[in-house]
Design a protein around this nucleic acid. Structure first.
Length: 474
DNA sequence: TTATAGGGAGCAGGATCTCT
DNA sequence: AGAGATCCTGCTCCCTATAA
């Protein structure tokens, strides 16, 4: 039998059926806790006056747990202190205390270290002070990291955790599949692997779980659920709010539901030359450029495309990708000044992100404040056609993210063949770039450019499509 | 005049979206 | 992981209509 870690226990708590199924595999995929970033580990070690060391593991039965640091008690030589480091700024709040999910994880480790024979004197939590402002230079660990002893909280959770572990152990050995009442769901809803495997053929293409902001505990979905009616098309249209109704109509007809007058009006606001902008950014817990804060998004790349006028199909494309982690925003700011047209609408997807990046750039480069604020005034958010109900297709699955909408509108445009196909992967690739051999770096840089470029290109292509179908005659 | 029910505005807090 | 936006709920406050 394979070993079990905290993420397995978490899976058991969230969805015992999925946990059971995962454990039936020949070799269950190990679900290891996500490792800490090295720069955070190092600062945490300094914070408690220790040499950086690898996490320490304890075993008991099938269970394995790690603590980030361990230290002998100065008072009682046979006792130890356990340290848990969390890459988060919201571990503790005066109003709500420690967050439940962290306490559970710590209680699990604490329990296991006790079982493994450690005499634990005290546990400590270490986390990020998100109010810290990095002025530059060496980061003093005491300024960035908060530390607090854990007392009663862990003791209380320990018994509960032990019980859950017993139940999980018993369940994984069970030969027959757990029963399911057809009404209770985990967060994955019908996408839960257990349901997919045992009830796959009964799953409707468009279900009530794809409705945005669905609440299963109140009407009309509570009733539908009680009757095990998962099919979106079976809901009584009388009871549905506007956006849900559109989605149902689309599911019934197989057609997108378009508010043509409103969409025409939306398209009419666009001004040429039409431009499209997309930033890629990293947001590490430990600040890496001066005058930034923990988890702040630092843009390192953008794609800017210009469609001069309706008479041409030619699109001018500009890309910027920062060389390295040393002040990536300086080059980015200059490149932005070089390629931005003085007028015309600037298409983005989910404008809060690009707008916030521009505001932060304006703080960093006050001399370009006016330029950046004028850009913000010209931003036009294409996501609005979905969130404001101008164009609803059930195939969006109730979401409005670019990765859901684009494949429906323009099936021929695909991220599938790109080595980097997602914002988080892009951020990660750039962050790890300096650890790659030089010949691979060139490939990664090209992959980053291709990905970012596709994001802006799809914005313009979608607008061209909408203009062809619904534009012109206003 | 007083007590009470009902409606509407305003607000805080939670949950849920999106982006990287 | 955090931040902004939005939606929803539940609460208070205040006004008005109504009955005693």
């Amino acid at each position: 039998m394979s070993s079990l870690h905290f993420p397995d226990l978490q899976q058991f708590i969230d969805c015992p059926r999925e946990f059971w199924l995962a454990q039936q595999a020949e070799t269950p995929r190990p679900r290891l806790p996500y490792p800490l970033a090295p720069e955070l580990r190092q600062l945490a070690a300094q914070r408690i006056e220790l040499q950086d060391q690898d996490p320490i593991w304890a075993n008991f039965g099938p269970w394995r747990a790690a603590v980030d640091f361990i230290k002998a008690s100065p008072n009682h030589p046979n006792q130890v202190r356990l340290y848990f480091v969390q890459a988060s700024g919201s571990v503790y709040s005066p109003k709500h205390g420690f967050k439940e999910k962290y306490l559970k994880e710590w209680a699990f480790s604490y329990h296991l270290f006790c079982l493994a024979g450690y005499e634990v004197e005290q546990c400590y939590a270490i986390w990020i002070d998100k109010d810290y402002r990095y002025p530059g230079g060496e980061i003093p660990p005491k300024r960035l990291l908060k530390i607090h002893p854990l007392g009663q909280e862990l003791a209380e959770l320990r018994a509960e955790t032990a019980l859950l572990m017993q139940k999980a152990e018993a369940l994984r050995l069970q030969k027959t599949a757990p029963k399911w009442d057809g009404q209770s769901f985990c967060k994955k809803k019908l996408a839960c692997p257990f349901i997919q495997k045992y009830h796959g053929q009964e799953i409707p293409a468009f279900s009530i779980f794809q409705l945005p902001r669905h609440r299963l505990d109140r009407p009309p979905l509570d009733q539908a659920l009680a009757q095990k009616k998962w099919d979106l098309t079976e809901l009584d249209p009388e009871l549905l709010p506007e956006r849900w109704l559109l989605q149902q109509q689309s599911a019934k007809t197989g057609q997108a539901q378009v508010d043509v007058p409103a969409l025409k009006e939306w398209l009419a606001q666009l001004q040429f030359p039409l431009q499209a902008l997309d930033y890629e950014a990293v947001n590490p817990a430990v600040p890496f450029i001066p005058h930034s804060r923990p988890f702040q998004h630092i843009p390192f790349q953008f794609s800017w495309q210009v469609w001069p006028n309706k008479e041409t199909e030619d699109i001018v494309s500009t890309n910027f990708l920062a060389q390295d982690k040393k002040e990536p925003t300086a080059g980015l700011m200059q490149a932005l000044l070089d390629c931005a047209q003085p007028q015309g609408s600037i298409l983005v997807w989910h404008k809060t992100f690009e707008r916030e990046r521009n505001r932060e750039l304006a703080k960093r480069y006050p001399e370009h404040r006016d330029f950046l604020y004028r850009l913000n005034e010209r931003l036009v958010d294409l996501e609005e056609i979905v969130t404001k109900g101008l164009y609803i297709d059930a195939k969006f699955e109730g979401r409005s993210s670019l990765k859901k909408v684009l494949p429906v509108l323009l099936p021929q445009m695909s991220y599938d063949e790109l080595p980097i196909a997602e914002g988080l992967a892009a951020a990660d690739a750039w962050w790890q770039l300096d650890q790659q051999p030089p010949q691979e770096q060139a490939q990664t840089r090209q992959a980053l450019i291709d990905y970012c470029q596709l994001d802006t290109f799809s914005l313009i292509k979608m607008v061209q499509l909408l203009m062809r179908k619904f534009g012109e005659t206003v």
